[in-house]
Amino acid sequence: MNPTRPTALIADDEPLLRKSLARLLNAAWPELEIVALARNGREAVEKFEQFRPDVCFLDVHMPGLSGVEAARQIGRRAQLVFVTAFDRYAVQAFEHGALDYLMKPVETARLADTVARLQERLRAPQPRADIDALLEQIASHLQKKLVAPATPPIAPPRDEPAAAPSAAPLRWIRASVGQSLRLIAVDDIDYLRSDEKYTRIAWHDDAGKPADALVRTPLKDLLAQLDANQFAQTHRSVVVNLHAIRHVTRGDNETALVHLKHRAERLPVSRSYLHLFRQM
Rank of each mutant, 00 (worst) to 15 (best):
R77A: 13
R77W: 03
Q79T: 02
L80N: 08
V81F: 02
V83P: 03
A85D: 07
F86V: 05
Y89M: 14
V91L: 13
V91G: 00
Q92P: 02
A93K: 05
A93I: 14
H96C: 08
H96W: 07
H96L: 02
G97D: 15
G97E: 14
A98Y: 12
L99A: 15
L99M: 15
D100Q: 14
Y101V: 05
K104P: 09
E107D: 15
E107K: 09
T108S: 08
T108A: 14
A109P: 01
R110P: 07
L111T: 10
L111A: 06
A112Q: 12
A112H: 02
T114P: 04
T114V: 15
T114S: 12
R117Q: 12
L118I: 11
E120Q: 10
R121Y: 11
A124Q: 10
Q126R: 14
P127S: 10
R128E: 12
R128V: 10
D130S: 01
D130F: 07
I131M: 06
D132K: 12
A133N: 07
A133I: 01
A133H: 05
L134A: 12
L135Q: 00
Q137C: 06
I138A: 01
A139P: 01
A139T: 02
S140L: 04
H141Y: 14
L142A: 07
L142F: 09
L142T: 00
Q143N: 12
Q143P: 00
K144E: 02
K145Y: 14
V147N: 02
A148F: 08
A148D: 10
P149D: 06
P149I: 08
A150K: 09
A150H: 06
T151A: 10
P152M: 04
P152C: 08
I154C: 03
I154Q: 04
A155K: 13
P156I: 04
R158F: 03
D159A: 08
D159M: 10
A162M: 13
A162G: 08
A163I: 06
A163K: 06
A163P: 05
A164V: 11
P165W: 09
P165D: 12
P169L: 06
W172R: 13
I173Q: 11
R174Q: 09
S176Q: 12
G178D: 11
G178R: 09
G178K: 10
Q179R: 11
Q179F: 07
R182M: 11
L183G: 02
I184L: 11
A185F: 03
A185S: 10
A185Y: 00
V186D: 03
V186A: 09
V186P: 12
D187W: 00
D187F: 01
D188Q: 11
D190W: 02
D190E: 14
R193P: 02
R193G: 01
R193Q: 15
S194A: 15
D195F: 14
E196Q: 06
E196W: 07
Y198W: 14
Y198Q: 00
Y198M: 07
T199Y: 03
R200E: 15
I201Q: 00
I201A: 00
A202G: 02
W203D: 07
W203R: 00
H204A: 02
D205R: 04
A207G: 09
A207D: 06
G208Y: 07
G208L: 05
L214Y: 13
V215K: 01
R216G: 03
R216T: 14
